[in-house]
Design a protein around this nucleic acid. Structure first.
Length: 576
DNA sequence: GCGGATCAC
DNA sequence: TATGGTGATCCGC
């Protein structure tokens, strides 16, 4: 009957979750625990908090399920962990043999971009704790970060952490102009420069360094000096043999510094060994928790637990993690292509509404915005997805495909209503619409995929074409059409158990087999046959890899950020 | 094709 | 008092 006066009921994971995604990605403050405590206390009781709690609970359940599955798979009779480790080691050898150290990749990143521009506009801000944003912070000055203030944080929480915090509102047109200036400078070092948002990007400086007979370090010093003298903005950079490593390295000596990873396999592997898995692009808070639950905190731990990851390839993606462990990733840098766009949308948050008429007004506004964007960028599409967020912060989507091309606001609104009305009555705080199955109204010709493949293969500035394969290219890339055609082979085990002993325990007369660490099928253990199978399996994996890399890869969702700015603040700078 | 989830910026 | 917007991908169904 005695319940201790507990200061809090939160689990550690919930407290961490409430601190937000940007906490933990960069170096965390020493007193981060205290800061997280304050954040949780301030949040407590809100609908946002309750929703986070719910999601945290669901994740905890999922982890329990995964651990149970792991134990089943590990303890299943006939499973020989050492054998599995040995076959994973074969994959590692194979991947290592394909390591490419020939390209010099740079990731550059402007230091607290929005905040730095604001200081240029108002020098009295220099050295003060301030943040840019409205209800949610876009960025915080370094002084503010000392208090635990982070981008993505709600303003009222930031104020609690740092009562002196100065709030500054966005000056989008300035950001857009500065961004374009910086990008133009960086392009001098690689015309194929790939922006990754408004304040960062990737370069392949191999050719530049050769032509100017300078080292990579000197080249990047030169670049950073040029950016500073021409814009008064400081930039940090990472130099490495691929984009993933370069991105991680650009954080090493931030702000206003650069870091050059040695271009040697051993140095790279020792760099990876102690690297927290969360630092890897594409590993977010959820993946971090999932991996941690099986003992993996660092990229070195991937090797320690390779047998588990092999058995649970489906849950974790074995080959991608192995490549990460080795520090192997794409070294291809290319500017984004217009035809690669997959969707265009608009969404708006507002004080929760329950009244049908008012909700429809919001929908109509979103439709008008979207129409205007689609008109400006000359896209139309066939599939409409409605998104709404309840008062409780739960998010739902409803979609409908049409035979017609949709881009007018009347059509958007009609379909939006069709999707929304059956859901009502609800109390809603956000409405969004997104259009997919796009058609380009500028350069019509939806079948440019193949053409581009051949164009690029001859003229690309970067060799390892690890770039995303479009569906039409998959067949071209597949060496063994008969085996690689369908994805079914990629999906190995389901939750049911495959007949265990019958195959792995065969008489000595039969050829011995064991489970392929990639596809989980039974494969002859004999070397040639096993290697042949491995090759096929990895090349299938490479397709999935290439797709998985689209998230860590440079060419994510950058171009539109600039478009959005120019839309919100069409003042000083005309766009392209 | 649809809906939920995760991730980046 | 109070927690954003745009775009991509993957998985399960």
């Amino acid at each position: 009957m005695v319940s201790e006066p507990q200061p809090s009921q939160e689990t550690a994971s919930l407290v961490k979750r409430l601190a937000g995604p940007s906490t933990g990605k960069a170096g965390l403050a020493k007193d981060q625990e205290d800061i997280n405590r304050v954040i949780a206390d301030v949040s407590k009781g809100s609908k946002f908090y309750e929703n986070e709690k719910k999601k945290d609970k669901e994740l905890t359940k999922k982890i329990e399920h995964i651990l149970q599955l792991r134990d089943e798979l590990t303890k299943k009779s006939g499973v020989n962990l050492q054998k599995i480790e040995a076959s994973v080691d074969q994959i590692l050898l194979k991947l290592e043999s394909e390591r490419d150290l020939s390209q010099t990749i740079v990731h550059f990143d402007l230091d607290s971009f929005f905040a730095s521009v604001e200081v240029l506009n108002d020098p009295t801000l220099a050295g003060k704790p301030f943040a840019v944003g409205h209800t949610v912070l876009s960025t915080a000055s370094y002084e503010a970060r000392k208090y635990g203030v982070r981008s993505g944080m709600a303003t009222f929480i930031a104020k609690k952490l740092c009562p002196q915090l100065i709030m500054v509102s966005h000056g989008f047109s300035d950001y857009s102009e500065m961004s374009h200036k910086v990008m133009a400078i960086c392009k001098r070092y690689d015309p194929q420069m790939c922006p990754a948002g408004c304040d960062e990007g990737y370069l392949n400086i191999t050719a530049y360094c050769a032509e100017h007979d300078i080292t990579a370090d000197a080249c990047v010093e030169h670049l950073r000096t040029a950016v500073f003298t021409e814009t008064k903005l400081t930039v940090s950079a990472g130099i490495a043999p691929n984009t993933m490593l370069a991105k991680i390295c650009s954080d090493k000596n931030k702000p206003n510094g650069q870091f050059h990873l040695p271009f040697e396999s051993e140095a790279i592997k020792s760099f990876m060994r102690d690297l927290p898995i969360r630092r890897v692009p594409g590993i977010g808070r959820v993946s971090e928790r999932l991996l941690e639950s099986v003992g993996i905190k660092t990229c070195g731990d991937i090797y320690t637990y390779r047998a588990t990851l092999s058995l649970m390839d489906k849950q974790f993606g074995l080959v991608h993690l192995l490549r990460t462990h080795l520090g192997i990733a794409s070294n291809s840098v290319q500017p984004p292509q217009r035809e690669e766009r997959k969707s265009i949308g608009a969404e708006r948050t507002f004080p929760p509404l329950g009244d049908k008429k008012k909700i429809l007004e919001k929908l109509e506004e979103v439709c008008a915005e979207l129409e205007s964007d689609m008109e400006e960028t000359q896209w139309t599409g066939r599939t409409i997805t409605l998104k709404y967020k309840l008062d409780s912060f739960e998010v739902f989507t409803r979609a409908k495909s049409s035979n017609r091309w949709i881009s007018k606001k009347e059509d958007l609104f009609a379909i939006g209503q069709e999707l929304l009305l059956p859901e009502l009555p609800l109390t809603i705080r956000l409405i969004g619409l997104r259009v997919t199955k796009l058609k380009d109204l500028r350069g019509p010709d939806p079948s440019t995929g193949i053409k581009r493949f051949f164009d690029n293969s001859s003229s690309s500035s970067s060799p390892n074409k690890k770039r995303k394969l479009s569906l039409s290219e998959v067949d071209e890339a597949a060496e063994h059409p008969s085996e690689t055609e369908k994805l079914e082979n990629i999906k190995p085990i389901s939750y049911r158990k495959e007949k265990p002993d019958s195959k792995s325990r065969q008489s000595p007369l039969e050829r011995e087999t064991h489970t392929c660490p990639v596809c989980q099928k039974q494969v002859p253990t004999e070397n040639d046959a096993f290697n042949a199978h491995l090759d096929a399996c990895l090349s299938r994996g490479a397709i999935r890899e290439a797709q998985a890399e689209a998230s860590p890869s440079p060419k994510q969702a950058q171009g539109n950020i600039l478009e959005r700015w120019t839309k919100l603040a069409p003042s000083s700078k005309k766009k392209s």
